[in-house]
Simulated scan of single mutants.
Amino acid sequence: MQHIALVGTTADAKLGFRAELIKDLVAQGHKVFAFAGDYTDKTRAAISALGAQPVSYSVSRFGINPIQDCYTLLQLVRLFKQHRIDMSFCYFAKPVIFGSLAAKLAGVPYRVAKIEGLGRIFTVPASGDTLRARILRWVQTQLYRLALPACHTVFVLNPDDEQDLITANNIKVKRCINLGGIGINLEQYQPFTASGKIKFIFVGRLLPEKGIGYFIQAATLLRQQGAPAEFVVLGEPDNSPGAINRAQLQKLVEQGIIYYPGRVGNVSEYLRQSHVFVLPSYYREGVPRSTQEAMAAGLAIITTNVPGCRETVSHKDNGLLVPPHDVAALVAAMQQLIQQPGLAEQMGQRSRTMAEKKYDVRKINHTILQALSLHTKQKHE
């Protein structure tokens, strides 16, 4: 039995994206310590129900205060020692950096990092780069330069992240494995051919980088043209600068441009009732989970030809790729599928086939567990 620290930022993300991995690790007889920075009584109970032990620690997800980050580092060193951790498994930027360094300082024998996209700091908006962004990107790259060589295995989700972060910056890592996706439980997303007018759906954080503004612009133009289509938005308003707020969403609903049901717990049911998933993101994604879910539900995909997003689409096969920041191209792609509903259905069928091949959580977790088992084997040799 190994004591494994699964270190992330939020409890909801752990429950939504790591539940299957936790269950698999527990089933193998390991003791899993689930580290998060925002536990509530409800999420603690949910993590415990999976068989893991919730562990709280202090982490500032988006802050750039070095004192706070040093506190996070020292706290993790103490907690790793307290729980006699044999293996650290860190994901998301700050846990990867400070969790991996803390694991090395604490003497954790085996250390694993999982990079799920390069995130906001590596995202370049349509207005171009800024000096502040370039400085922050340089600082984070230097931190990765310290942390990643301390890991025995680094997982990435797409080849661009390995190239742009590790290879381009000559960061020495012992082993890098491209998982190709985060993985989803395919049984929860059964394909279903929706009827009625073609329905486009956006699912995700309502951030500019995720392309919600471009989706709304396209929906507005198509409404003005009288296109026989519906436009659905799922996602919570975000407090980040430039993010769309609830009042703006309500106004769009009143204008008849979008349907916005607010916070929902049954995303899969909304996907089943839709035809085309649209994600005009320019964010440095890993491989968007929302797109993987839409593919599993049998939807055609329209997304951008940028790192992470382009991994989900074989152009003109299961969907269409458009350039980032190009509303005209996005509208044209949506018009094509409005005019050819049979093509949208065909693309949706191909999406499901691709999801079964590439994004089955059982296959992806098997790859992860094989890597972790190799570490365990080496420990006893």
Results as ranks from 00 to 15, higher is better:
R263S: 03
A243E: 06
Q340C: 09
G256P: 11
H325I: 01
G183Q: 08
E236D: 10
I97W: 05
W138G: 12
V306K: 15
D160T: 06
G51V: 04
Q142T: 01
M334D: 05
R205E: 05
R134V: 05
V173K: 06
Q292R: 07
F62Q: 13
N185P: 02
P241L: 06
K114T: 03
T304H: 03
V55C: 03
L15F: 01
M1G: 13
P324Q: 01
G262T: 01
R289Y: 12
K363M: 08
G16P: 00
D24E: 14
R132V: 12
I22G: 00
A227R: 06
Q255R: 15
R120D: 09
Q339R: 13
E187Y: 04
L299F: 11
P191E: 00
Q188T: 05
M347G: 03
L186S: 00
D360R: 11
G51S: 05
R137C: 06
E293H: 09
S240T: 09
F231P: 11
F35P: 09
Q217N: 12
Y359I: 03
K363H: 09
Q349K: 14
L337M: 13
T193E: 15
V59W: 07
K358S: 14
R223H: 13
C151E: 07
Y359S: 14
I97D: 07
L271M: 15
I171D: 05
P288N: 13
C309D: 13
Q217W: 04
G37Q: 04
K31E: 12
V156N: 09
A344R: 11
M1T: 11
I67Q: 14
P341K: 14
I338T: 14
L221G: 05
K197W: 06
K104F: 07
K104N: 03
P341H: 13
Y144E: 03
G8I: 03
Q349P: 01
G256Q: 00
P324C: 02
Q335V: 07
A45C: 04
G342T: 10
G286D: 08
A344D: 10
A294E: 10
Q370T: 05
I67V: 12
N365M: 12
A113I: 02
R44F: 02
V173S: 07
F98S: 08
A297K: 08
A333Y: 06
I201L: 09
M1I: 08
